[in-house]
Write a protein that binds this DNA or RNA. Structure first.
Length: 203
DNA sequence: AAAATTTTCAACCGCCCAACA
DNA sequence: TTGTTGGGCGGTTGAAAATTT
């Protein structure tokens, strides 16, 4: 059972993208766009890749407006705030953050923020009431602002204003990212230089 | 210095949904 | 109305770098 694959797995290349493939994809998309059809696009662009893989590579890495690594404390706080209200709606969360992708946000949460919260609070899980039902259909089309569909929550608009950590922590609230010894800027502790393309970390 | 472990993130997988025939 | 197709999403995995032992 199950649906047919979107492409012939035996006939497409998988794994890390080479610089040549990146360039081929970038130049094609910049000249023609995806053509409204990611499945057909790889062939036109001369790529032996699955269309979904091309789409993912473009959206998560090659798009010119992407920022990689180096999440700020403010961004951490936004992610935390939105996660507690929306749950793991990474695309929604990312849509409120300039230059961030859902994959970036998801990775950042899973590798750093979740661990910090667990360490700081003992156990952490979003408040059950905070989770919203399955998104309305318009969510997925991008024609409607996702946040307009959850009017009951006051989600700050990151794109319009710089946020301070305090915006998301009530007066006297415990800073979940603060170090156990009470020192501040927990969000920056123990951070290593961000990785760059190919998994290599910047020095 | 080398081995083991941890961390990070790019990429894949499978599912859901909307559009269309 | 039903079946098919493609786009999009969240969850998960695996390779490589960084860190620790």
């Amino acid at each position: 059972m199950g649906r047919t694959p979107c492409c012939d797995r035996a006939a497409v290349k998988r794994g890390p993208w080479s610089p040549e493939e990146d360039e081929a994809l970038r130049s094609y998309v910049q000249r023609h766009g995806s053509g409204g059809n990611w499945i057909a696009m790889p062939k036109k662009a001369g790529l032996k890749r699955c269309g979904k893989s091309c789409r993912l590579r473009w959206l998560n890495y090659l798009r010119p407006d992407i920022r990689h690594g180096g999440f700020t404390a403010e961004e951490d706080a936004v992610i935390l705030s939105l996660y507690t209200q929306l749950g793991s709606k990474w695309s929604l969360i990312a849509s409120q953050m300039e230059g961030r992708t859902d994959n970036d946000v998801k990775n950042h949460w899973n590798t750093k923020l979740k661990k910090r919260l667990l360490a700081a609070a003992g156990t952490f899980s979003p408040a059950p009431h905070a989770r919203v039902p399955a998104p309305a259909p318009a969510f997925r089309t991008g024609h409607v602002s996702p946040l307009s569909l959850v009017p009951s929550v006051g989600i700050p608009t990151v794109k319009n204003r710089a946020y301070t950590y305090d915006d998301f922590l009530g007066a006297g609230a415990r800073d979940p990212f603060a170090a156990a010894d009470g020192s501040t800027s927990g969000a920056f502790r123990g951070c290593r230089p961000p990785m760059v393309h190919g998994g290599q970390r910047a020095q």
